[in-house]
Amino acid sequence: MKRGIAGSMESNDALITVKESDKLSVTVKSIVYDFFHEQIEKVIYDTLAERGIGNVEVICEDKGALDYTIKARLLTALDRMEG
């Protein structure tokens, strides 16, 4: 199974893991989950839609990253998965 990882567990960053899958699943773990999990999920879904990716497993471990950081880490993880 192909997978890609990008980012870190440092403050203001996010560690994002993506894996090949036959369905779409997004899991968010965040230090600000109660306040921002919907926003983080939206960034992830929007980024996947921009890339035209329907089926993939995304695990986002967020340490207070801003939207552009989450998007950047997801894009890098996807690029790494695709090789």
Partner: peptide
């Protein structure tokens, strides 16, 4: 290198 390039690009874009 790939991660930094994408992060800076997204940072500038935002």
């Amino acid at each position: 290198k790939d991660a930094a390039r994408t992060l800076v690009a997204q940072f500038l874009s935002a």
